[in-house]
Design a protein around this nucleic acid. Structure first.
Lengths: 187, 187
DNA sequence: ACCGTAGGAGAACGTTGGTTCTCTCGTCAA
DNA sequence: TTGACGAGAGAACCAACGTTCTCCTACGGT
């Protein structure tokens, strides 16, 4: 079997199990069973569990941001793209198995003990914030709007994760609309 | 030694270590060393580690909400109390050893595997949200403001935890001010 | 056909950590 | 004074888990 295929299968299983149950509660043996990749191969691909965790977060980061950006880019009007972020969040919150933000969860679990995981979480959040800043700029809105929009999105992710409801996305979208309107009035 | 004293010492050590390093990475033996309470006594007071975790979260919940409420109640003008929440958050974010919201962290670590911990996190967040709702009512503002204020506060806690900065509190406070002003204009 | 190598299954190893047990000592009532 | 009891220190027990090792099978090149 191709190494690339084994790597994908390992990461697929890691993503499903780590996200659903937390990282520390999933053992390498369970990962072997779920992925169909032998322990020997797993350790060839990822010499330690921590490296597998890093690869999981890195791949998920890339996918998560790409999916969001692709969805939002479908709106031709730049002003529509900011609410579109919250629409996309709402769809995500409603997916089967949604359990909050993988990076916030990983930070709670490993942020204090793994500097690399903490760094990946910071990088992911910074990238998301930069993306919001680019949307704000495209919409020709004041850059100061980025921070509040980011906080609303983060709050919605946390709250949706804890409560299991999609409603925080709608609340955040409406609040964002008000903030955008108020910022527009400044001109 | 009094049982109540031992219980307090155990919970003091648990709070310090669990909050700083995460729950799963702190062993009962380390807790014994840090608290000065023998293992035998610890297990008399808390028959399992999970029960100690629950007691830690419960006591911290009670203290956290009391301190916030006491601080905010110092503002005589009900309209000043909503920004006062974010002032208090800012002070908290700046404390030595601040590592984000203990409940969000606990949820990331144990929410998927411990139904009781997940329930405690939900209860804490709901109580905080209810408290914000009471402030909104006292200020005679529309109840729909509660959700956005809550999301801003949650987003600020997460972001301050991950980045180590107090700035999210100021951003959230300013956004809250704008939302309050916009809600006031509706009348 | 034969050998060397890769890979899989699963046992084995070593550590960690939650929980319990043993042993000892000090205290206090009779 | 003695004996029962509670408490502390720390060893012991046991399961889980990250990581490595053993053994066996299959296959590709000569």
């Amino acid at each position: 079997m191709d190494s690339a295929v084994a790597r994908d299968q390992a990461l697929d299983a890691a993503e499903e199990l780590f996200y659903a149950r937390g990282i520390q509660s999933v053992g390498m043996d369970e990962l072997r069973g779920a992925s169909g990749v032998s322990l020997k191969r797993l350790y060839q691909l990822f010499p330690t569990k921590e490296q597998l965790v890093e690869a999981y977060l890195a791949r998920r980061d890339e996918r998560w941001r790409r999916r969001l950006a692709e969805d939002v880019a479908g709106r031709p009007d730049p002003r529509e793209r900011i609410p579109a972020v919250f629409d996309w969040l709402e769809g995500w919150f409603g997916e089967d198995g949604f359990r909050g933000c993988a990076w916030i969860n990983a930070y709670g679990e490993l942020g204090a003990t793994s500097a690399r995981v903490a760094q990946q979480v910071r990088a992911h959040k910074e990238a998301f914030r930069d993306y919001l800043a680019s949307l704000v700029a495209e919409a020709e809105l004041p850059a100061a709007l980025t921070g509040p929009l980011f906080l609303l999105a983060e709050g919605a992710m946390v709250t949706a994760g804890v409560t299991g409801s999609t409603q925080p996305a709608a609340e955040a979208r409406e609040a964002a609309r008000v903030l955008v309107a108020a910022a527009g009035q400044v001109y």
